[in-house]
């Protein structure tokens, strides 16, 4: 933010920013509508619906992160520790998932 500090504080920039926020808000509204609209589309199986729904949600979330949370012009430091966080979350997901369903076992290992 501070690299071109003056730009980011000027009224023109802020006015533009305000407009962008409204537009992104609008996009998010529409995307929410789409999410609801496609929930019962027959995509072959429920897993496909889930994947699709999560895809839209991820896109929405990215918009919120990049525009609303100004991550798009944020400093590298934040990216650094956010990326570690993401890696660890994925680690938590994948590794404990594998703890339940091991690729070398044909069936679900009894979790109960």
């Amino acid at each position: 933010m501070s690299h071109d500090h003056h730009d980011h504080d000027s009224p023109e920039y802020l006015k533009k920013q305000s407009k962008i926020i409204w537009i992104v808000g609008g996009i998010l509204f529409v995307a929410t509508g789409i999410t609801v609209g496609v929930m019962d589309l027959d995509l072959g199986s429920r897993s496909m619906n889930i994947a699709f729904g999560m895809l839209i949600a991820t896109i929405k979330a990215s918009l919120v992160m990049l525009i609303f949370m100004h991550l798009k012009n944020e400093r590298g430091l934040i990216y650094k520790f956010l990326s570690f966080t993401i890696v660890f979350v994925i680690g938590l997901f994948v590794l404990s998932y594998l703890g339940f369903i091991d690729p070398l076992h044909s069936n679900l290992i009894s979790t109960k």
């Binding site: 590794l95 703890g99 690729p103 070398l104 076992h105 290992i109």
Partner: peptide, 25 residues
């Protein structure tokens, strides 16, 4: 620090995890 996040299941070898995860950990 990094690695310490991906070794946790060595406390759980006896829970019947499969061979792949066990090897990983």
């Amino acid at each position: 620090g990094f690695l310490s996040f991906i070794v946790w299941a060595h406390h759980m070898y006896m829970t019947g995890m499969g061979p792949v995860v066990t090897s990983f950990f």
